[in-house]
Design a protein around this nucleic acid. Structure first.
Lengths: 255, 255
DNA sequence: CGGCGGATTGAAGGGAATCAATGCTTGTGG
DNA sequence: CCACAAGCATTGATTCCCTTCAATCCGCCG
């Protein structure tokens, strides 16, 4: 593998702690599952900026994103999370959220754990502690990747990277992994995530459709030509080592 | 304070753990200071992609950045760190670096701690553990902020945000805090950091100079009009609460 | 001196934003 | 059941920020 392709591969975890972290991940999930499931209707933020002591969240169903609104009213979506993902780990150290956490389109089911409980869990169980550190590092890697993607790729490549990323995260989270999957995001939300405008996302999707690479209709993504999709996403190309990643990070689906 | 300005303020840490973390930060630094100081000549990476088991680093002198090269040879600089900053905390959980860590322009002095030693430190000392989690969360916030900045602001605003950010981090790290400071980055590196081209950075700097807002000459930044600089950086405006941040995060300078 | 990396500037082109108008679904209420 | 509104998707025309290509200049160093 080429040294140049680094930001593209998913990070690989040190072997010594991999299995350890794997099992700890399941214990961590288990702790969340003890909590009652909550639901957020669409358009109802899960975490608001005004909330004090916001919880850490494990998503059960539906897509969720973190977003912030800029001075001029424009919006930036920093992170898209799907069932099985944790979100809001920053709340471990922040007494107020820095971004809102909002459900996308459909109804969201989730488990919420207060930071204090997670801290004591981490203090008692060193492996869970490592899992949390691992999650934080992975999210940082993801944020960096987004910044590089927005800064250095054109609209077409950015969209392809995003779609491939979601496509490859789905099976990790125990979700359907076919070439067709559900993506409950509006084009405006995609635009806000990728630093584009709604209009330009639309045009770019049309071109991808005309070239028979990928088809997005309503909220369904159909990958028509996976190889060419990968080509388009090159620059920061995709996952070379899904196998090892799965070994290190697979978990019991929460669904 | 406006709810809309969130990603702009530095994160505020939960009061309960603030002092705790403050003292732990100094213990953490102390652990790094036990190591022999190392030096990296300019153009000599501190951490390479090929390194296995890369260390965590505390910077003593000089500026340092993390960067990755894309498929087409273009580069993305994801993070700029200055004396007093930690870098490479991701190496706690990665057995190979995802990005190179490179010194900028001048000679870099640093302390390096193997991940295994940091882990045992964290296991022994819960407060240090919290400090590390806090640092990781802060870096993620910084990465998110960069992504939002590149995605939603124009060249002028991006540059102003970057300059203000550095200007305000300097005193936190025990460095000179006047309106004039040293910025050992080439225009090309600034461009790679902000998702622009060298040429356009140059033009934008010229306009900022003509408007008598900020002057960059050689590697010296002179802020001519701090208020207007803040105006330009609006959108994700700057630090509203430097006081609280300092209280929570000031540390003994390592110089 | 010559070479080199960085900075500067001009001219031309393109990708994306903006402005604006029109469909298309969906949900709501009369 | 239809009318209507609202939100999202689609498309065209125009503008402009930024890139690309190219040339020059400057300070530095062997």
């Amino acid at each position: 593998m080429d040294v140049e392709t680094t930001l593209s591969e998913r990070p690989r975890y040190a072997a010594a702690i991999a299995d350890d972290v794997l099992r700890a991940g399941n214990r961590l999930r288990h702790a969340f599952l003890q909590k009652p499931m909550r639901f957020a209707p669409p358009d109802e933020p899960i975490v608001r900026l005004t909330d004090s002591e916001p919880p850490v969240i494990l998503i059960h169903s539906g897509f969720v994103f973190r977003c912030c609104v800029l001075g001029d009213g424009r919006r930036a979506i920093l992170n898209i999370a799907m069932p099985g993902d944790f979100i809001g780990l920053d709340h471990l150290v922040l007494h107020r959220a820095t971004e809102e956490i909002i459900g996308a389109a459909n109804r969201v089911g989730y488990y919420a754990l207060p930071p204090s409980e997670l801290w004591s869990l981490m203090a008692r169980d060193q492996a869970i502690n490592r899992k949390v550190v691992t999650l934080l590092a992975e999210m940082r890697w993801r944020s960096d990747r987004l910044a590089a993607s927005i800064g250095r790729l054109d609209a077409r490549a950015r969209i392809c990277v995003m779609l491939l990323d979601i496509y490859e995260r789905l099976p990790r989270n125990g979700l359907n992994s076919g070439l067709t999957f559900n993506l409950p995001l509006t084009q405006e939300q995609i635009a806000d995530h990728l630093g584009l405008t709604l209009v330009h996302v639309n045009r770019t999707l049309r071109r991808l459709r005309e070239q028979r690479i990928v088809l997005i209709e309503r909220q369904t993504v159909i990958i028509l030509d996976l190889d060419r999709l990968r080509e388009c996403a090159e620059g920061l190309p995709q996952v070379a080592e899904l196998v090892e990643v799965c070994r290190n990070d697979r978990h019991i689906p929460v669904l």
